[in-house]
């Protein structure tokens, strides 16, 4: 059974359509990254999964049931993007309140606060917490009752680099335990290694979904190869220009060449063979590059539609 199944969902706000025919599913123990610009439909998708919105058209199933089912809600954790909590309560009291509402055992509260690094501050009022501390409290809240599905909306906002790393490690650990996770984010670098699949939304339409390698293949974005310590860099350069590759020299004995899909291994062989390269650096298209590619594509499509 899939943790989340979204089939042919469209969502209208008045005359505005914010989601067009969305199809998306999330397997058990899978981490899906949900990316997109502001107003792309990320939040709407989240709300549909959370049962806060009823889809205008299509079907949403969460853990095999209707999203607003109380059974589902007990097994679901959600970290909202902006939550200030109750200023007068301490972190510990806040978490106890939410644990009671979720029907989760109160003895896990201390352990969760420890896990997110709030043990020292748990008896202080939330009013005195920094943005990052509130974010961590929100995370502890989302983890109450060991949820089977976790929705994290911008989880890294306000976190310092170490806390961000801790968060990613936590995500890895939860995934191993079989938790399904949807991660909504603007911060692309660093997240690649921790997601199974990425879904890119633009203008309410799903532009692409798949693992990073399949997206790379689909997008056909070139890899960048940098080699240094070459013996015959001039010869190589001339040959590649002749074959139509984009290449340039860096420094005295270095070359940078753009490898279109399918040419990568050939170019590498030449660098190692004829060039006798001493060091080679391959830069694969990152999530950011893919994101930019699909965003540009979406913009072009939209512009074309506008003209038509």
């Amino acid at each position: 059974m899939n943790a989340v199944e979204i089939e042919g969902v469209s969502q209208h706000y008045g005359a505005m359509t914010v989601l067009h025919d969305l199809n998306l599913c999330l397997g058990e123990g899978e981490v899906l990254g949900l990316f997109g610009h502001n107003g792309a439909g990320k939040t709407t998708s989240m709300k549909l999964i959370l049962g806060l919105l009823q889809a205008s058209r299509g079907r949403v199933q969460v853990l095999g049931r209707n999203p607003s089912d109380a059974q589902v809600r007990r097994q679901l954790g959600y970290l909202p993007e902006n939550v200030t909590f109750y200023a007068q309560l301490s972190g510990h009291e806040t978490l106890c309140h939410f644990a009671r509402l979720k029907g989760a055992a109160l003895n896990q509260v201390d352990a969760l606060l420890e896990q997110v690094g709030l043990a020292a501050a748990m008896h202080r009022r939330v009013k005195t917490y920094s943005k990052g501390m509130r974010q961590r409290l929100g995370l502890a809240q989302a983890l109450l009752g060991a949820p089977r599905l976790l929705l994290l909306d911008e989880p890294t906002v306000g976190l310092d680099p170490i806390a961000t790393q801790d968060l990613y490690q936590l995500i890895d650990r939860l995934r191993q335990q079989g938790t399904s996770i949807i991660l909504c984010s603007h911060v692309l670098p660093g997240v690649e290694a921790h997601i199974n699949r990425a879904a890119i939304l633009a203008n309410g339409r799903l532009q692409a979904v798949g693992s990073l390698s399949s997206l790379r293949e689909d997008a056909g974005l070139p890899a960048l190869i940098r080699a240094s310590g070459l013996q015959h860099s001039e010869q190589l350069l001339q040959r590649w220009h002749g074959e139509g590759h984009k290449a340039r020299t860096i420094g005295a004995d270095g070359i940078e060449v753009v490898a279109i899909n399918g040419h990568k291994l050939d170019l590498l062989r030449q660098l190692l063979g004829d060039g006798q390269a001493q060091d080679i650096d391959i830069h694969q298209p990152s999530l950011e590059d893919l994101y930019r590619y699909y965003m540009d594509k979406a913009r072009t499509t939209q512009a074309a539609e506008g003209v038509a």
């Binding site: 806060l52 809600r73 679901l76 909202p80 200030t84 109750y86 200023a87 509402l101």
Partner: peptide, 13 residues
């Protein structure tokens, strides 16, 4: 305004 209403509504409540 505190963002807790939306959160509470995702609870079994």
């Amino acid at each position: 305004e505190g963002g807790t209403l939306m959160l509470l509504l995702t609870y079994p409540l």
